Simulated assay, not measured.
Amino acid sequence: MTVAVQTTPRRALPGTPARSVPAVRHLARGALLSLAALLLGITAQLLFLSGVQERAAQHTAYDELRSALALGTAPVSQTDQQGRLLAPGSPVALIDIPSLQVRQVVLEGTDSAVLTDGPGHRRDTPMPGQAGTSVLMGRAAAYGGPFGRLADLAEGDTFKVTTGQGKATYRVIGVRRAGDPAPAAVAPGKGRLVLVTATGPRYMADGVLRVDAELVSETFQTPAAVIRPGTLPEAEQPLASPAGVPWPLVMWLQALLVASVAAVWTWHRWGRHQTWIVFVPAVAVLGLQVATRTTELLPNLT
């Protein structure tokens, strides 16, 4: 005769450490935390922080330009007083469009990095107020969207651009999108300004908007061009994205992933309160850095 012996599952004794979470699960949860931090960071960067960043850069550029105008050292050509090409991001002009309540410092260059700080002057065109066609480009939505309302300009509207040579007054002669006919070529000795931005839903540019304006004030002296028209790199063309591998973004992404995995691991090993205190600020800062580098990859007119 056999006697059945009933066994019961063994319970962990008090004080026995819980089974450790597998490494794969740590990585998966860390990746999800990284993704959440990245999405929140991009949202905050696009909707709020990029505009704050642009305004801060504009204040700095305005102080620099005002000082240069007072000293008579503001640039009036593609080169500085030593004959060197102007550095990208150098303040070169102040554009004032009363009907749009736009007052922005114009920087030299039109790639994505320059246009995060304000409108840019296309380097292979004359300075505003000079003979020929000058081109200014600006973002429509991100980083304050300084040129976001250009489509509201109407024929006959006037605005001014201040450079080291004085104030130039322009009158709008047309607003055009892709497929619209371009105005007649500018007459010799006359000046024109083209304002360029993006069209389409916010942060999802699908075309280019151009506002043509003729110079109605006296034409300034026009120095000889150093950069020939049509020779700019692709990164400075309308709707262009930064060229090359975004190494800063890659490094910040790696740091965010490591911090997120470490946060998940310490949550199980150390405790939730300690994890919140130590890792939430770190993950938030890293997520914001990644978001900033990600938005810099947007097309330059977005």
Rank of each mutant, 00 (worst) to 15 (best):
M1R: 10
T2Q: 15
T8I: 02
T16K: 05
V21L: 15
R25S: 14
S34Y: 04
L38I: 11
I42Q: 03
Q53N: 11
E54W: 07
R55H: 14
A56G: 08
A61M: 05
A61Q: 03
Y62K: 04
R66F: 15
R66M: 09
R66Y: 14
S67C: 08
A68P: 13
L69P: 10
G72A: 03
G72T: 02
T73V: 04
P75Q: 05
S77F: 02
R84W: 10
P88M: 01
G89L: 07
D96L: 06
Q101F: 04
S112T: 06
V114K: 00
G120L: 06
H121G: 07
P126C: 10
M127K: 01
Q130S: 05
Q130L: 10
S134H: 04
L136C: 05
G138K: 04
R139C: 07
A140P: 00
A142K: 00
G144V: 00
G145H: 13
G145P: 10
G148A: 12
R149V: 00
R149P: 00
L150M: 12
A151M: 03
Q165F: 04
G166R: 10
K167W: 01
Y170F: 15
R176C: 00
R176E: 14
G179V: 03
G179L: 12
A184P: 00
A184K: 09
A185R: 10
P188K: 05
V194W: 05
V196K: 11
A198F: 08
T199M: 09
G200P: 05
P201T: 00
D206L: 03
D206Q: 12
D206T: 10
A213G: 05
E214R: 08
L215H: 08
S217I: 02
S217D: 03
E218C: 01
T222M: 06
P223S: 07
P223Q: 06
A225M: 11
V226F: 01
T231K: 12
P233K: 03
E234A: 15
S241T: 12
V250S: 04
M251H: 05
A255Q: 09
L257S: 10
L257K: 03
S260W: 08
V261I: 14
V264T: 09
T266D: 13
W267R: 03
W267A: 10
R269C: 08
R269Q: 14
R272M: 13
W276A: 13
I277Q: 11
V278S: 10
V278Q: 06
A284W: 13
L286R: 02
G287Y: 04
A291I: 08
A291Q: 07
T295F: 02
P299F: 12
P299R: 05
